[in-house]
């Protein structure tokens, strides 16, 4: 039909709507934006923003990009997986499914919204780092850092959708994202700088999963001893492969209706209602 809105216009509406829902859910906004910021500030205070000899950077210079990645992954992976699964529990996805909105536009809205929220977290994090903790940003590596950020957030958004596709309920989505993200954050150099004392197998595990391939190139771009332009093609390709794989699987496995468990619970409730 001629007066059908273009998919681009629809996407714009969807992004605005997803952003609105995000910022009106205080707990999500807190854990995505302020929690990583808090860790960054606490780390910088606890370690007194010292110069770390082995890494050639100050504490803040190391943790600002690392925690920025953590915030970006929270905004994409954790946030998309849990909100999508909760929306399915409530029947919102089923409602969307009954409208003419193409599924790709709906999912696209979630991903673009995640990219914007992640970008906001990163800008706040780096901004506070620059203003108060002497963090430096280099024009030479900035393009690579931005592209790494976009590919990273895109990949973790797809992984968030995959988790939503695999788990039965919103509660299980929360459990799965925490149980996967937090251990990986410890071994991938988000909460702790990489150490030579760690066993080899641990590094192998970290290398298999995508988080390290996001943190490492992004942090390297803010390392003052690094002289290149920041393009880590191997990690970017690896991230993309995870992202594409997750997208394909999520598309195939995605369910729009509440799981039968919660559905039958609702039916039981209905059956006991006086009529």
């Amino acid at each position: 039909m001629s007066d059908r809105q273009s998919n681009v216009a629809l996407l714009g509406t969807q992004v605005g709507y997803q952003n609105k829902v995000f910022f009106r859910t205080p707990i999500a906004a807190f854990f995505t934006i302020f929690f990583p910021l808090m860790i960054f500030v606490v780390f910088s205070l606890v370690f007194g923003n010292q110069y770390i000899e082995e890494l050639g950077v100050t504490t803040a210079q190391y943790f600002a990009p690392a925690m920025a990645v953590f915030a970006a992954v929270s905004a994409s992976y954790t946030n998309i997986a849990t909100t999508t699964a909760y929306q399915r529990d409530m029947g919102i996805l089923k409602r969307i499914r009954g409208t003419p909105l193409p599924a790709s536009v709906y999912m696209g809205g979630k991903i673009v919204s995640a990219v914007l929220i992640a970008a906001l977290s990163v800008v706040i994090m780096m901004g506070i780092g620059i203003l108060f903790y002497g963090v430096e940003v280099y024009a030479r590596t900035l393009p690579a850092a931005i592209v790494t950020f976009l590919i990273g957030v895109g990949t973790f958004s797809a992984l968030g959708l995959l988790v939503a596709a695999l788990v039965p309920t919103g509660e299980s989505a929360t459990a799965v994202t925490n149980a996967t993200l937090l251990p990986l954050a410890f071994i991938s150099g988000v909460f702790l700088p990489p150490s030579d004392d760690a066993p080899v197998w641990l590094e192998t595990v970290a290398n298999i999963f995508p988080l390290k391939h996001f943190v490492e190139p992004f942090s390297t771009a803010f390392n003052p001893t690094y002289t290149g332009s920041g393009w880590n093609w191997a990690s970017l390709t690896y991230l993309l492969a995870w992202g594409i794989g997750a997208t394909i699987l999520a598309t195939r496995l995605f369910k729009w209706e509440p799981s039968t468990g919660s559905g039958s619970r609702r039916r039981r409730r209905r059956a006991t209602e006086p009529s």
Binding site: M1, Y17, K20, V21, T25, G91, I92, K94, R95, G98
Partner: peptide
């Protein structure tokens, strides 16, 4: 087709935040 039908579901399902 979906542009020409309207569905009223049994369970309310809209984001509470809106």
């Amino acid at each position: 087709y979906r542009e020409r039908i309207g569905i009223v579901l049994q369970e309310t399902a809209v984001e509470d935040q809106l």
